[in-house]
């Protein structure tokens, strides 16, 4: 064995050849994968997670299962659907003591719903997303007995868009979907809208 390396580069040996061949094969494989993907890239812009309100069963997992605390799922208010009811079944507990903003009457555990008088007998209901924890208590009340203008949506200014959504995994209604990045919300509309 020489203690000084020989100045001439070693000839391409069998091992080197094998390596080059494998690399070429791997590159071809990756190229094929790219090609395959390219044939189906019409919507390859990416996805985000979203809730289909029609499938939501208001189980409350959105509040607890999200990796974020508080959850990235919030209740939203679709004003065109809202009945602006005085007795809002999303705002008030069943059999409310009085139709006022007293804590004993509110269904929201964090008082995230704001009740604003508009004109007799209509009230506007707004969600304070900083307070909302996505527990869906109001959604259940509004959907079961009202117009269903309250519903849950993944808020994309908060959502981390995990590769695997940890709420989707446990969603009792199988309501979570990957929706195209370009159309990231499932907004409820009425039939005549």
């Amino acid at each position: 064995m020489p203690d000084v390396p020989s100045s001439t580069p070693p000839p391409v040996n069998r091992r080197q050849f094998l390596r080059d061949g494998t690399r070429l094969a791997a590159m071809t494989g990756l190229g094929a994968l790219l090609g395959l993907a390219a044939t189906r890239t019409s919507t390859a812009r990416g996805y985000v997670w979203q809730i289909d309100p029609a499938r939501c069963v208001y189980c409350g997992n959105c509040a607890t299962a999200c990796v974020l605390k508080p959850s990235a799922v919030k209740c939203v208010q679709s004003y065109p659907i809202c009945g602006y009811c005085d007795l809002c079944t999303g705002y008030f507990v069943p059999e409310p003591n009085g139709l006022n903003t007293g804590a004993e009457n509110q269904v929201c555990p964090t008082a995230a719903i704001e009740r604003v008088f508009i004109e007799d007998p209509y009230y506007e209901y707004n969600i304070d997303e900083d307070l909302c924890i996505g527990c869906a208590k109001c959604v259940e009340g509004c959907t079961r007995f009202g117009n269903g203008s309250f519903y849950l949506q993944v808020r994309h200014d908060r959502c981390l868009n995990c590769n695997e959504c940890s709420i989707a995994r446990v969603c009792a209604g199988d309501a979570f979907r990957r929706v195209p990045l370009t159309d990231p919300y499932v907004i409820k509309t009425t039939a005549h809208e």
């Binding site: 065109p80 009945g83 602006y84 959907t143 117009n147 269903g148 009425t190």
Partner: peptide, 14 residues
């Protein structure tokens, strides 16, 4: 009931 709420509104918007 959640599904049926889609189609029509129980309380017409004012």
């Amino acid at each position: 009931s959640g599904v049926s709420a889609w189609a029509e509104l129980r309380f017409p918007p004012p």
